[in-house]
Design a protein around this nucleic acid. Structure first.
Lengths: 119, 119
DNA sequence: TGGACATACCTAAACCTACTAGGTATAATA
DNA sequence: TATTATACCTAGTAGGTTTAGGTATGTCCA
């Protein structure tokens, strides 16, 4: 359940894109779950969508891991849970961004081999 | 409303990269499992590696789905199982390539928003 | 006043992919 | 002969994501 130490990084070809996107958004500003879902859709040029039900487990794991922290904020008598990125989250974001670029470049090389070099 | 039973799925943010790469390689020439593993490593600029033990289940699934077909070929008294892509596999490759580009563009937009246009 | 709808959050369980970690067997090399 | 490289294989599992359901409040409007 809890992966204390052995968080081991089996280099997945690609998972963690949702987390990457969430952390990226939160690095720009505090947001609440419901908002994040829609922001991802918009920020990705409406090409990717994150099922609404998926965001909460994702956020909870991120919080457990200390990558984000939440605080309640009232809004029109309704409570919203805003999430903010932590320093650890910023580090994680950098790491994931690096991995993303590596995978992306690797796949690109394989797909476009033979074609003119990519930038 | 109801989707067909088992098959379909979920717009994953990203899975299927291994399959994408395998099909891509096989679209260029017939290869055997052990060779594919090393080819992926090379073709991706040595940035991605596919665990050797992973390739066989992957190939078996691809064959079950009719995307590749295999034939034995002797080589120095040893038998190799060569895989070739099928028309169905070619279609699948196109589909996966399209999905890959969509995800890649979406993530890129989200990550680089604000920066100068990407190439 | 009440019904529909959007907002906002939540969770257990299922689902798939891909990985781990082990295995077999042959050929080449030292 | 022992070791290494080649070549294939599979059961079991991890782990990220989705599904499919749920609760509850606020807003709009007929």
């Amino acid at each position: 359940m809890k992966k204390e130490a052995a968080k081991k990084a089996s280099q997945n070809f690609l998972n963690g894109v949702p987390i990457l996107l969430v952390l990226k958004l939160l690095s720009e500003k505090e947001m609440y779950g419901y908002e994040i879902v829609r922001a991802i859709h918009e920020k990705t040029g409406r090409s990717l969508s994150f099922p609404e039900g998926s965001i909460y487990p994702t956020l909870h794991v991120l919080e457990e891991d200390g990558h984000v922290k939440s605080r309640e904020k009232a809004h029109n008598g309704r409570t919203r849970l805003y999430y903010a990125i932590t320093p650890s989250g910023t580090k994680k974001l950098e790491q994931l961004t690096g991995e993303w670029r590596k995978v992306f470049q690797g796949v690109h090389l394989a797909l476009d081999a033979g074609k003119a070099g990519l930038s």
